[in-house]
Design a binder for these strands. Structure first.
Length: 110
DNA sequence: ACATTGACTAATT
DNA sequence: TAATTAGCCAATG
């Protein structure tokens, strides 16, 4: 098995576990993955999580992954907002971003 | 091997 | 609270 695929799988698996109506930030995902994987398989930061998701394409609820500001990924943001709204994700008053205080999800908390 | 790019974050102003 | 700047890690050309 190729090295690095574990990281990719870990990210995809974690994203797939995000409950409907909840979200996770790139930084949080990076933290959890780093903690779950051995040092050899670790990859650095939030940007790599984004890279993995960009390559993942369909089959993964990527719209449940948001940046630290609470806004959807820089691309496809209208699609993400639509999907989030459809799933009942708590949106901020402006409607342009997610209410992190209410929607942010943590794997161990749930 | 060097420079550029990107689904990012945190600190500063 | 919002806009700017600097730092970050890996991929890609």
């Amino acid at each position: 098995m190729r090295v690095g695929d574990d990281y990719l799988e870990a990210v995809l698996d974690l994203v797939a576990q995000i409950p409907r109506g909840r979200v996770m930030t790139y930084g949080t995902i990076a933290e959890v993955i780093s903690d779950r994987l051995p040092a050899d398989e670790r990859r650095g930061g939030p940007r790599q999580v984004g890279y993995v998701l960009s390559r993942a394409g369909g089959g993964v609820p990527w719209w449940r992954v948001v940046n630290a500001a609470g806004g959807p990924a820089a691309s496809h943001l209208s699609a993400a907002l639509t999907a989030l709204a459809s799933e009942g994700t708590p949106l901020a008053a402006a409607g342009l971003r997610v209410d992190l205080r209410a929607a942010l999800w943590w794997p161990v908390e749930d």
